[in-house]
Amino acid sequence: MAAELDDADLTILRVLQDDCRVGLERLAQECNLSVPSVQRRVKRLRDSRLIQKEVAILDPSQFDYKMTFIVLVELDRETLQQLDLFRKRAKAEPQVQQCYYVTGEADFILVCTAKDMQDFEALTHRLFFENSNVRRFRTSITMDRAKVGLHLPI
């Protein structure tokens, strides 16, 4: 799909990655195109799922969820069914912000948020202790959010 993108499409995507609320007029200016042309391109990029979602990144220090945890999870059984069950459980948990199926020592890496240690402990019970297929999990507590984002360097 990326091969079908021209310079204007890439410019639109770069600008939207920085600020998805930017107006069509500014996008048109950045691309040297008309507003209707940019509007059609943005619609095509959304319809093709190159733009999967447009979100706001919140400042966690302004809310109750002030702690972030990186959790490496090892499963006992790695059948397709067991992997899918864990994925579904992680996706359904609101405190799991990101879930990656990975190679190496762990099967999954989760980025989780919690209000405090007691809240995280409750999360571990729901996700790990109540799941008989979780062999073990290892947790790192983040000290600082040095960089947060999902930008692609296009």
Rank of each mutant, 00 (worst) to 15 (best):
V71Y: 07
I70D: 03
S61F: 07
L72T: 06
T103D: 08
R41T: 01
V38T: 04
R77Q: 14
V42R: 01
M67L: 14
Q95F: 10
V73H: 06
R46I: 02
V42D: 00
M67F: 05
V35Q: 13
L75T: 11
A92G: 05
S61V: 07
A90I: 11
A106L: 12
K43N: 04
V38A: 07
M67S: 08
V55M: 08
D76W: 15
I57T: 04
L33W: 00
R46S: 02
L72G: 14
V71W: 06
M67P: 01
L83Q: 14
D84M: 10
I57G: 01
R41Y: 03
L72N: 08
L80R: 14
R41A: 01
Y101D: 05
K43I: 06
E78D: 11
A92E: 12
L83M: 15
D84V: 03
I70M: 11
R44F: 03
K53F: 08
D76P: 02
Q39K: 04
A56L: 13
V35H: 04
L83E: 15
V73N: 08
I51R: 01
P60A: 07
S34P: 02
T103Y: 13
Q39P: 00
C99P: 10
S48D: 08
T103I: 10
Q98H: 15
D47F: 01
L83R: 15
C99H: 08
E54Y: 00
Q81D: 13
R46K: 12
S61R: 11
P60D: 13
A106N: 12
T68K: 10
E105G: 14
S37W: 02
Y65H: 07
K43S: 09
P94F: 12
E54K: 06
R46Q: 03
I70P: 00
Q52D: 08
L45W: 06
R77L: 09
P94M: 11
V35Y: 03
F63A: 08
A106T: 11
C99V: 15
R77S: 12
R77Y: 13
R77I: 12
Q95S: 10
Q81N: 12
D84R: 10
I57H: 06
V42E: 00
